[in-house]
Protein backbone atom coordinates (compact mmCIF):
# COMPACT_ATOMS: atom_id res chain seq x y z
CA UNK A 1 0.00 0.00 0.00
CA UNK A 2 1.23 3.47 -0.98
CA UNK A 3 -0.13 6.51 0.83
CA UNK A 4 -1.12 9.46 -1.34
CA UNK A 5 0.63 12.09 0.81
CA UNK A 6 0.13 14.80 -1.81
CA UNK A 7 -3.66 14.63 -1.52
CA UNK A 8 -3.91 13.63 2.16
CA UNK A 9 -5.79 16.37 4.05
CA UNK A 10 -5.93 15.11 7.65
CA UNK A 11 -6.92 18.34 9.43
CA UNK A 12 -9.51 19.59 6.95
CA UNK A 13 -11.04 16.13 6.74
CA UNK A 14 -11.10 15.69 10.51
CA UNK A 15 -12.63 19.14 11.01
CA UNK A 16 -15.14 18.59 8.19
CA UNK A 17 -16.04 15.22 9.67
CA UNK A 18 -16.59 16.82 13.07
CA UNK A 19 -18.92 19.39 11.44
CA UNK A 20 -20.88 16.53 9.86
CA UNK A 21 -21.00 14.91 13.30
CA UNK A 22 -22.15 18.20 14.81
CA UNK A 23 -24.98 18.39 12.26
CA UNK A 24 -26.01 14.82 13.13
CA UNK A 25 -25.79 15.70 16.85
CA UNK A 26 -27.93 18.83 16.45
CA UNK A 27 -30.53 16.95 14.44
CA UNK A 28 -31.04 14.11 16.91
CA UNK A 29 -31.02 16.39 19.97
CA UNK A 30 -33.08 19.29 18.56
CA UNK A 31 -35.40 17.52 16.11
CA UNK A 32 -35.20 13.94 17.33
CA UNK A 33 -34.29 12.75 13.88
CA UNK A 34 -31.50 10.85 12.15
CA UNK A 35 -29.48 12.96 9.69
CA UNK A 36 -29.50 10.32 6.97
CA UNK A 37 -29.52 11.98 3.57
CA UNK A 38 -30.94 9.06 1.56
CA UNK A 39 -33.79 8.72 4.05
CA UNK A 40 -34.52 12.46 4.12
CA UNK A 41 -34.56 12.70 0.31
CA UNK A 42 -36.29 9.35 -0.27
CA UNK A 43 -39.04 10.22 2.22
CA UNK A 44 -40.15 12.98 -0.15
CA UNK A 45 -41.25 10.29 -2.59
CA UNK A 46 -43.64 9.03 0.09
CA UNK A 47 -45.16 12.37 1.10
CA UNK A 48 -47.16 12.42 4.34
CA UNK A 49 -48.86 15.35 6.04
CA UNK A 50 -46.44 17.33 8.24
CA UNK A 51 -43.52 15.28 6.97
CA UNK A 52 -42.50 17.27 3.91
CA UNK A 53 -41.45 20.76 5.02
CA UNK A 54 -38.61 19.75 7.36
CA UNK A 55 -37.16 17.55 4.61
CA UNK A 56 -37.29 20.42 2.11
CA UNK A 57 -35.72 22.78 4.68
CA UNK A 58 -32.86 20.35 5.36
CA UNK A 59 -32.19 19.85 1.64
CA UNK A 60 -32.36 23.62 1.07
CA UNK A 61 -29.65 24.08 3.71
CA UNK A 62 -27.52 21.36 2.15
CA UNK A 63 -27.86 22.81 -1.34
CA UNK A 64 -27.18 26.38 -0.18
CA UNK A 65 -24.05 25.37 1.75
CA UNK A 66 -21.61 25.60 -1.19
CA UNK A 67 -23.08 28.93 -2.30
CA UNK A 68 -22.61 30.44 1.17
CA UNK A 69 -19.21 28.79 1.63
CA UNK A 70 -18.14 30.35 -1.65
CA UNK A 71 -18.86 33.86 -0.39
CA UNK A 72 -16.19 33.52 2.33
CA UNK A 73 -13.77 30.84 1.12
CA UNK A 74 -12.75 29.19 -2.12
CA UNK A 75 -14.58 25.94 -2.83
CA UNK A 76 -12.18 22.99 -3.05
CA UNK A 77 -11.44 21.75 -6.56
CA UNK A 78 -13.79 19.05 -7.78
CA UNK A 79 -13.01 16.44 -10.39
CA UNK A 80 -15.53 13.97 -11.84
CA UNK A 81 -14.18 11.35 -14.20
CA UNK A 82 -17.38 9.35 -14.62
CA UNK A 83 -19.13 9.44 -18.01
CA UNK A 84 -22.85 10.21 -18.31
CA UNK A 85 -23.66 6.49 -18.62
CA UNK A 86 -21.63 5.66 -15.50
CA UNK A 87 -23.22 8.55 -13.56
CA UNK A 88 -26.69 7.23 -14.45
CA UNK A 89 -25.83 3.63 -13.53
CA UNK A 90 -24.20 4.80 -10.29
CA UNK A 91 -27.16 7.02 -9.40
CA UNK A 92 -29.65 4.20 -9.96
CA UNK A 93 -27.61 1.81 -7.81
CA UNK A 94 -27.25 4.39 -5.03
CA UNK A 95 -30.96 5.25 -5.19
CA UNK A 96 -32.25 1.68 -5.06
CA UNK A 97 -29.50 0.45 -2.73
CA UNK A 98 -29.82 3.13 -0.06
CA UNK A 99 -33.61 2.79 0.12
CA UNK A 100 -33.54 -1.02 0.07
CA UNK A 101 -30.77 -1.09 2.69
CA UNK A 102 -32.37 1.74 4.73
CA UNK A 103 -29.45 4.16 4.68
CA UNK A 104 -26.23 5.53 3.27
CA UNK A 105 -22.92 6.90 4.52
CA UNK A 106 -24.67 9.39 6.82
CA UNK A 107 -27.59 7.35 8.19
CA UNK A 108 -25.73 4.07 8.70
CA UNK A 109 -22.13 5.32 8.72
CA UNK A 110 -22.21 8.46 10.86
CA UNK A 111 -25.45 8.10 12.85
CA UNK A 112 -25.73 4.30 12.98
CA UNK A 113 -22.15 3.74 14.08
CA UNK A 114 -22.47 6.74 16.42
CA UNK A 115 -25.28 4.96 18.27
CA UNK A 116 -23.51 1.61 18.05
CA UNK A 117 -26.19 -0.12 15.98
CA UNK A 118 -25.10 -3.62 14.90
CA UNK A 119 -27.46 -3.31 11.93
CA UNK A 120 -25.71 -0.16 10.73
CA UNK A 121 -22.31 -1.77 11.27
CA UNK A 122 -23.29 -4.60 8.92
CA UNK A 123 -24.67 -2.13 6.34
CA UNK A 124 -21.53 0.04 6.58
CA UNK A 125 -19.23 -2.97 6.17
CA UNK A 126 -21.31 -4.05 3.15
CA UNK A 127 -21.16 -0.72 1.32
CA UNK A 128 -17.52 -0.08 2.20
CA UNK A 129 -16.48 -3.55 0.99
CA UNK A 130 -18.55 -3.11 -2.16
CA UNK A 131 -17.07 0.37 -2.77
CA UNK A 132 -13.49 -0.89 -2.35
CA UNK A 133 -14.20 -3.87 -4.61
CA UNK A 134 -15.88 -1.78 -7.30
CA UNK A 135 -12.96 0.68 -7.48
CA UNK A 136 -10.52 -2.23 -7.53
CA UNK A 137 -12.35 -3.84 -10.47
CA UNK A 138 -12.73 -0.56 -12.39
CA UNK A 139 -9.17 0.75 -11.81
CA UNK A 140 -7.07 -2.39 -11.63
CA UNK A 141 -8.85 -5.18 -13.48
CA UNK A 142 -10.75 -3.48 -16.34
CA UNK A 143 -8.51 -0.52 -17.21
Amino acid sequence: MTIDWANFTPWASLAGGMLIGLAAAMFILLNGRIAGISGIVGGLLRPAKGDVLWRVAFIAGLVLAPLLYQSAFTLPAVEVDASVAVLIAAGLLVGVGTRYGSGCTSGHGVCGLGRRSPRSLVATLAFMASGFLTVFIVRHLIS
Partner: peptide, 21 residues
Protein backbone atom coordinates in the same frame (compact mmCIF):
# COMPACT_ATOMS: atom_id res chain seq x y z
CA UNK B 1 -32.20 -6.54 2.13
CA UNK B 2 -29.89 -4.67 4.50
CA UNK B 3 -26.83 -6.42 3.06
CA UNK B 4 -27.93 -6.41 -0.59
CA UNK B 5 -28.95 -2.75 -0.35
CA UNK B 6 -25.56 -1.90 1.15
CA UNK B 7 -23.73 -3.82 -1.57
CA UNK B 8 -25.69 -2.08 -4.34
CA UNK B 9 -25.13 1.33 -2.78
CA UNK B 10 -21.40 0.65 -2.38
CA UNK B 11 -21.12 -0.37 -6.05
CA UNK B 12 -22.76 2.89 -7.16
CA UNK B 13 -20.58 4.88 -4.74
CA UNK B 14 -17.45 3.21 -6.13
CA UNK B 15 -18.50 3.81 -9.73
CA UNK B 16 -18.98 7.58 -9.56
CA UNK B 17 -17.51 8.64 -6.20
CA UNK B 18 -20.80 10.23 -5.12
CA UNK B 19 -22.91 9.25 -2.14
CA UNK B 20 -26.27 11.01 -1.58
CA UNK B 21 -25.13 13.92 0.66
Amino acid sequence: RLVLGGLAFGAGWGLAGYCPG
